[in-house]
Design a protein around this nucleic acid. Structure first.
Lengths: 121, 121
DNA sequence: GTTACAGTTGAACGGTTGTTCAACTGTTTG
DNA sequence: CAAACAGTTGAACAACCGTTCAACTGTAAC
């Protein structure tokens, strides 16, 4: 939680603004939704995790292959995979000594596609 | 930039994995795109900024109204607005003593909509 | 059992980031 | 001009986060 509901003085604009605030207050998603939303985007806000998601697009990969491909240690990759696992963005299955990860949700690709559209303008 | 291209030993799996790595290497977006993408998502990864974007959806608002609505100081809001401005997600126009902010891009709503769909499952 | 490799985990370190505070600019009003 | 309010800005602080390191588990092969 953040510092909402402190002693913030209302601004002394005309009454018009007051009504805009009240209208918006009703339309806004509730606070917990906003936090969930921010937490969701936070996961994509790291180049390592984005890279992993691209790597897993349409292809199962084991940890050491992902690490080799990104030029990172297995440990660093594993830490990030844990975050992606906890967020239900990837699933895994063990096969011998290897653990193969894959995308859990095709939904995720849509979001990244939209963002790619946006930044290439 | 992160710690790519260090001395990460290739894993000693069968040749199969090696070819997967090479295939993926070609399909992946280039590194700078991945960073731009991550930076873009980073902006949405904060509940204050997400709240501001919702507040500005379909409505111009001045800084002190946004602050009052969120229960935050004008300074904190202004700092976040600067980030949104720099990322071209919002525009502003001065009107007397007030500065009214509005969404710069309808594209952004699509992305948030997609994310909302995802988290409500 | 032991060796070797894949993967995980927790602590620690350094860098990043959001809010606060105080000082500032810009505009309107008297 | 001065006073009042809207907004901005930079430094400072605390909290957060990603990588590293070392120690660990799990599986396969000898």
């Amino acid at each position: 939680m953040k510092n909402h509901d402190k002693n913030i003085p209302l601004c002394e604009c005309e009454e018009l603004h007051e009504s805009v605030i009240n209208k918006k207050r009703e339309e806004m998603p509730d606070v917990s939704t906003l936090y969930t939303l921010a937490d969701f985007f936070k996961i994509f806000g790291d180049s390592t995790r984005i890279s992993i998601l691209f790597a897993l697009d349409g292809e199962k990969m084991c940890v050491c292959d992902i690490a080799a491909m990104l030029g990172m240690t297995k440990s660093a990759v594993s830490h990030q995979l844990k975050i992606l696992r906890t967020s239900d963005l990837v699933t895994y299955e063990r096969s011998g000594k290897n653990v193969f990860y894959s995308l859990a949700d095709e939904h995720v690709k849509d979001i990244i596609e939209k963002a790619l559209e946006h930044i290439s303008e």
